[in-house]
Design a protein around this nucleic acid. Structure first.
Lengths: 193, 193
DNA sequence: ATTGCGTGTCAACAGTTGTTGGCATACGGT
DNA sequence: ACCGTATGCCAACAACTGTTGACACGCAAT
């Protein structure tokens, strides 16, 4: 405790930590939780498997660090109400291109209980909060958020995980024009149509 | 080849085979492909692990047998065009309750390439065929089927795999009234609304 | 009774997994 | 120059995996 630095100064191993995290995200996204072995991740990061354990404690700990994910949902209050659906689809599609973290989380959530819980947290907290921000009936907020999650995760699942050809080949713009009305209705519409 | 029975007569081990298959479906559905071990499946079926190998050749072979799945889509041609969405959601929801095969396939498809390919086949063949049955523009059939698959698989994923509370708690009837219009638009509507 | 085959168990294999401890090296402060 | 600590590698462990072969039992036909 001899006068610790007020802010944690950058450690020399930060580059290694980052390399591990990057390799872990790639492997978890490509292979899922159980097939992504620590040895393979370490090989990708060009270090020894034991380093992974020292820096992240366990495989679970590594995954928890690698699957840290923020939907980065924009504030929806200034958005014109009739453009909510389009705004959301566009945001999700751009958020997923170039960040494989969500694909990793998606694949892992299928088999790993911890990952499933994190997925629940993300959509229950971040998405529900965003939906609640513009004032609809609070009693329907959770259900609306759940429906949005079902379509949005279904899109991600078919496009990035199962890779259904029609969903892979369709351009982002076409996807937006098809799916935006769905989210729009889930957010502001009524059941039955 | 000494005068084989014209029809394969029932073998004495059919009960064992069925028990293995039932246990396999349960385990694959609950744990996914890699976490569902042959030893655990054999223990559930109360037989020796080596029997699984003798009857199904390998773990892959067992999964292939356990994940045999038919959507059992009804003929959609006699359905009034404006009820197509409702008919489909209702069918899927009832098809999944009491048959964990699709959940097994869903969980496995996240990590097992073979399972993902089977999932693609099922939705590319069975669903696309059903959609093509009533005469829309053939050039849009694949896309419409893909969109339906995205919402339907998203529903299954959030309700049965990730178990998002709002999607678990909502009654089938409410789900139908919310999601039917979505499928209806994907099937018969136009992009943009 | 004896033969053949289907059914089942047991033990073991070879490989892989997450995880651990010991040992070398290099850095930074004194 | 010295020393403590951080960083890295190596070898090994114990557990678990899918898979295999040898062996025992019981049934049906000869």
């Amino acid at each position: 405790m001899t006068v610790p630095a007020p802010q944690t100064q950058p450690r020399r191993s930060d580059a290694t930590r980052a390399a591990i995290l990057r390799a872990a995200r790639e492997r978890f996204a490509a292979d899922g939780y159980e097939r992504a072995t620590i040895r393979a991740i370490a090989a990708d990061a060009q270090i020894d498997p034991s380093m992974v354990m020292r820096y992240y404690g366990s495989k679970e700990g590594l995954f928890a660090a690698a699957a840290e994910f923020d939907l980065r949902l924009p504030d929806l209050t200034p958005v014109p109400p009739e453009q909510l659906g389009e705004t959301l689809v566009r945001h999700f599609l751009s958020r997923w291109d170039g960040d494989e973290t969500l694909v990793a989380l998606l694949r892992a959530a299928s088999t790993n209980p911890g990952a499933a819980e994190r997925m629940r947290d993300i959509f229950a907290n971040q998405l529900t909060t965003a939906v609640a921000a513009f004032g609809t009936d609070p009693t329907t907020t959770a259900r609306r958020a759940g429906l949005v999650a079902s379509q949005v995760l279904g899109l991600a699942f078919t496009r990035y995980v199962v890779r259904l050809p029609p969903m892979v080949d369709t351009t982002p713009e076409d996807l937006v024009s098809w799916i935006a009305p769905t989210l729009q209705r889930y957010l502001t519409g009524t059941p039955g149509s």
